[in-house]
């Protein structure tokens, strides 16, 4: 492509009036070795544009977002509910045991108290009987 033509295109390019085809012509011209010195800047620009287009996204694209946070919460709730269930299952008989023992202790204390009362009263009776025996002895001695 002759220089005059390129210069015309360059002017259109600067005013953003070129078509894609015309820009392709310019790119073709400016990415080759010999460029007129006063148009050198365009060579840098077009070379840069070409070079940048080579850059690609190399990582693989995942379609589902990472679930790490959600999974944590999910497993946390599962663990919590399991712990709750266990504590209910294991805790219930334990509590029952404890309540039974409390009840037994209460009953034992009551019985103990009752027996104590009985024995005290019996002792009182015994003393009275002993007194009677003494009286009787005295009476017998006196009668002899």
């Amino acid at each position: 492509m002759e220089l005059a033509n390129i210069e015309k295109l360059v002017e259109k390019y600067e005013n953003a009036e070129t078509t894609l085809q015309e820009e392709a012509i310019l790119k073709d011209y400016f990415t080759k070795e010999d460029v007129a010195p006063h148009l050198q800047e365009y060579s840098y620009m077009f070379n840069y544009f070409t070079a940048v287009k080579d850059e690609t996204y190399t990582k693989t694209i995942k379609l589902e977002p990472k679930k790490s946070n959600k999974i944590n919460f999910k497993w946390l709730s599962v663990a919590a509910s399991i712990a709750l269930l266990f504590s209910v299952f294991i805790g219930k008989p334990l509590i029952k045991d404890y309540q039974d023992r409390k009840e037994a202790e209460r009953i034992y204390a009551q019985v103990n108290e009752g027996l104590q009362l009985l024995s005290n009263n019996l002792k009182k009776g015994e003393q009275a009987v002993a007194q009677l025996y003494k009286q009787e002895d005295k009476a017998n001695k006196a009668l002899k």
């Binding site: 390019y13 600067e14 005013n15 953003a16 800047e41 365009y42 840098y44 620009m45």
Partner: peptide, 11 residues
């Protein structure tokens, strides 16, 4: 057009 001109002028 402004962008292209700016780049060239700066260069």
């Amino acid at each position: 057009s402004r962008a292209r001109k700016t780049i060239r002028q700066e260069l």
